[in-house]
Write a protein that binds this DNA or RNA. Structure first.
Length: 347
DNA sequence: AAGTCGGGGCG
DNA sequence: CGCCCAGACTT
């Protein structure tokens, strides 16, 4: 049975929906899963080249599970939210070890995997197996919030609950994969955040926000709070081969698992560290322009200080989370956008 | 300059 | 449960 809402969505999909996205070709759970994780944080146009490189390097879940984490982060470089790449890797290993490389087909089992919550599990099972589950990503939230004039912000539990109820209510028992894709497409191409194309929308008739004449008022906005400002020093330590020291960051926190310049709260901390590791006084060769990086919850001002070593450094720093970065050689670890930008500037 | 995004993790 | 965390991109 296909409810009227879903019927309209499906008719629109047949004419206007996207059917040629890379992950729509051979939509196996693995291929859909990787695309969904990438799409959680990034728009389709940006994801496509990343997805192609990722599938080329990791064509199946076993290849991904067996790869070094550095390789995974390298292909994620620039996408942000690096915990998702780490979760992707971890989940691949669980699917290899606990499910013999075959993704579970039960939604509850799927949701125990790292990085897969209710909506992502539903999307994978819907798009790859046609199972009838509702999704609720940002696009679908917008469509439903407008159609039903749900005013609150989806970060509020009761608003989220209402949206899930609407999503479940409209679910068709047939053509679920097309319906899921259609809802995402409508949110992305028609029911956009600003300037929605209501005149082209198949749901215009029943849409409460349209009737009110103010689709832009939905969904409700996250209450804003001002960002704390933080500052730190980034040490650009150069040895006499012209190589720069990179530090493997801890697995959690900002830029987790990526490689970046050693960071210090102040020059005293930096000087102490240099004295301890290189028996060298801290002679700052250059103070480079401050880099400002904005995260969702604070703004970071990084002051790069260049220090040149006069003696050849001991090689004890190699391995164990440290390396000397050679500008002209291939480096397999992941770099944050800030570090990459920095390297681009000096090259 | 401000808004966006789904899920993890903690108390 | 309620709250905070994470980053590069679009508008």
């Amino acid at each position: 049975m296909i409810p009227e809402f879903a019927n309209k969505v499906l008719i629109w999909f047949d004419q206007h929906g996207r059917k040629d996205l890379p992950w729509q070709q051979h939509p196996t759970p693995y291929r859909v899963w990787v695309s969904e994780i990438m799409l959680q944080q990034t728009q389709v146009a940006t994801v496509i080249p990343y997805y192609g490189r990722f599938m080329q390097r990791f064509p199946d879940v076993l290849t991904l599970a067996d790869a070094p984490q550095d390789d995974v982060l390298k292909l994620w470089e620039g996408l942000g939210y690096y915990s998702r790449a780490r979760n992707l890797h971890k989940t691949a290993q669980r699917v290899r070890d606990e499910y013999a490389c075959v993704f579970p087909t039960d939604r509850a089992d799927m949701e125990t995997l790292s990085g897969i919550g209710r909506s992502t599990a539903a999307a994978i099972l819907s798009l790859s197996h046609g199972q009838a589950h509702a999704i609720l990503d940002g696009n679908v939230k917008r469509v439903l919030a407008r159609y039903h004039a749900v005013a609150g912000w989806s970060g509020e539990p009761r608003t989220l609950k209402q949206l899930w109820e609407h999503a479940e209510h409209h679910l068709p028992t047939q053509r679920n994969a097309d319906y899921t894709q259609a809802m995402m497409d409508m949110g992305a191409t028609l029911c956009t955040r600003s300037k929605p194309l209501c005149l082209l929308c198949p749901l215009q008739d029943g849409c409460k926000a349209f009737q009110q004449g103010k689709p832009q008022d939905y969904p409700g906005k996250r209450p804003k709070k001002d960002l704390p400002e933080k500052t730190a020093l980034a040490l650009l330590l150069r040895n006499n081969d012209g190589e720069l020291l990179l530090q493997h960051r801890p697995p959690t926190g900002i830029w987790g698992g990526l490689w970046s310049f050693p960071e210090f709260a102040d020059e005293t901390a930096m000087a102490d560290w240099l004295a301890q590791h290189f028996a060298q006084t801290c002679i700052v060769a250059a103070r480079l322009p401050t880099l400002t990086h904005t995260f969702s919850h604070y703004r970071l001002h990084l002051q790069p200080l260049q220090v040149d070593l006069d003696a050849h450094p001991a090689r004890i720093m190699e391995g164990n989370g440290w390396l000397w970065y050679k500008a002209d050689t291939h480096f397999t670890g992941g770099l944050s956008a800030a570090v990459r930008q920095f390297f681009q500037n000096i090259e």
